[in-house]
Design a protein around this nucleic acid. Structure first.
Length: 420
RNA sequence: GCGGCUGUGGCGAAGUGGUUAACGCUCCGGAUUGUGGCUCCGGCAUUCGAGGGUUCGAUUCCCUUCAGUCGCCCCA
């Protein structure tokens, strides 16, 4: 039995996941984000309506199947739709605070060909903020995403764009009209995009230098005065926050629900290859209403946890570790009960303790101490038992103390880093 | 879904159409039966992803398949 394609067990990298979790919790605390967890399995319809039935993710990347009652269910491919569904279902929009902020993290599923930084089961952490559209709310949200990176000691580059909400159809039509005469000279992918999702042509890597794209109408040209003012205000706020960014007019996101500001955090391509976007997000001001809630705007982002793990390794940032304070060596089965009692008392005092359960030779047990990288070794044998003591040995320095077996207070102090 | 590369013990990694598949690390045992982490000695793949074919003979050649990896598409 092997694991499924594109899925993996987390053990060797668990310390990196723990470090990321700690950073998420630190930012969730300082931004006062409320925890929200939604089911991994939802009605297929939710994602069709939320992300757009014509998006690639929905068309060919979802794990969709019928349950025993023939209901079509889908393993969530992203987190936003579920959070919005929960937000509406529990009428969280009625909560008193004017800006309602949530965060989540967990596994997501997309049926794709795995490659670097991309898997079939992967993990995201996301933040969703429900509030009237406001540049300062967006700036605050972006700040949260940047803060997570800062906590981790990572740097990424912020790219920003503003999609036109009000004149979206106009712009699409203008872009298609402009590209129509050049259609034959565009790459094969772009020719299909022309019909399916013309905005994505702007983001094409192959045709990036194509003359037809160089002078194509840009989304920013089609912004209303109001939207332009919004985008300018957002940029001013980011400058006030001292968050560097570049405006990327070609930045288009692949999910249908994005309406206004969109952004991505990217790391060096040398680190993550083609999947160098570690976080992406933007405004989705229609989604709450689309899914049956009130006309309330929202903004959010999601990080790809696995991509952060790769970035942490590349930056040689140490994973979180959980060191062992003490290993109790049991030299003879006759002292096992005393060892168990000692270990119990120290654990109650908050120390990380393990003990030998196979009373091998002393040499062998010392080897185990080394392998476990315990800070202290305790020796408990017939000699100690006779005198009611236990020997504590500091591994790094080699100095040893003979302590009274019942003096767990002193032991605890030593294990917590104090002097004997 | 399409394309490139790869597949030898826990890990890294040589190798060849032919009786016993290097080496390094790890691990295990011992030298050294209450103080180890050094050193030395010994041990650990009937087997080279799986299935089939060619051959007197294949881990080495061919086909198929599976897996991994990177890229395309798309996305976090």
């Amino acid at each position: 039995m092997n694991r499924l394609k594109g899925m993996f067990d987390i053990h060797a990298d668990a310390g990196y996941y723990a470090a990321i979790k700690a950073a998420i919790q630190a930012v969730a605390h300082s931004h006062h984000l409320a925890r929200i967890e939604t089911p991994i399995l939802e009605s297929s319809d939710l994602f069709h309506r939320g992300m757009g039935a014509d998006t690639d993710v929905i068309r060919k990347e979802t794990y969709t199947f019928n349950d025993r009652a023939s209901r079509s269910l889908t393993l969530r491919p992203e987190g936003t739709a579920g959070v919005v569904r929960a937000f509406i279902e529990a009428k969280l929009y009625a909560r008193p605070e004017p800006v309602k902020k949530f965060y989540y993290d967990g596994p997501m599923f997309r049926y794709e060909r795995p490659q670097k930084g991309r898997f079939r089961q992967f993990h995201q952490m996301g933040v969703e903020v429900f509030a009237e559209a406001s540049p300062s709310v967006d700036a605050d949200l972006i700040h949260a995403s940047v803060a997570i990176l800062e906590h981790l000691g990572l740097t990424a580059h912020l790219e920003l764009n503003q999609l036109s909400n009000t004149s979206k159809p106009d712009y699409k039509a203008a872009l298609k009209a402009h590209l129509k005469p050049h259609l034959d000279s565009l790459c094969a992918d772009c020719q299909t995009r022309y019909a399916d999702n013309p905005l994505r042509i702007l983001d094409c890597k192959i045709d990036a230098t194509h003359t037809a794209l160089q002078n194509a109408p840009m989304p920013l040209d089609y912004l209303s005065d109001e939207e332009t003012a919004y985008f300018n205000a957002l940029q001013d706020h980011l400058k006030a926050l001292e968050i560097p960014f570049t405006v990327n007019n070609h930045l288009v996101r692949g999910l249908d629900y994005y309406t206004g500001m969109v952004f991505e955090l990217k790391v060096d391509e040398a680190i993550l290859g083609a999947q160098n976007t570690v976080a992406g997000g933007g405004r989705y001001d229609d989604l709450v209403h689309t899914l049956g809630g009130p006309a309330l705007g929202a903004t959010g982002f999601a990080f790809g946890i696995e991509r952060l793990v790769v970035a942490l390794k590349a930056a040689e940032i140490a994973p979180l570790t959980d060191p062992l304070d003490l290993y109790v060596m049991v030299l003879d089965a006759s002292v096992t009960d005393y060892a168990l009692q000692l270990v119990k008392a120290l654990r109650h005092a908050g120390c990380a303790v393990m003990m030998s359960h196979h009373d091998g030779s002393m040499k062998k047990q010392f080897k185990t101490v080394t392998q476990l990288d315990a800070a202290y070794a305790a020796i408990l044998g017939p000699d100690e038992l006779a005198s009611g003591t236990v020997t504590f040995k500091h591994q790094a320095s080699g100095t040893a103390h003979r302590l009274n077996l019942s003096d767990t207070a002193t032991m605890t102090r030593i294990l917590h880093g104090g002097d004997a």
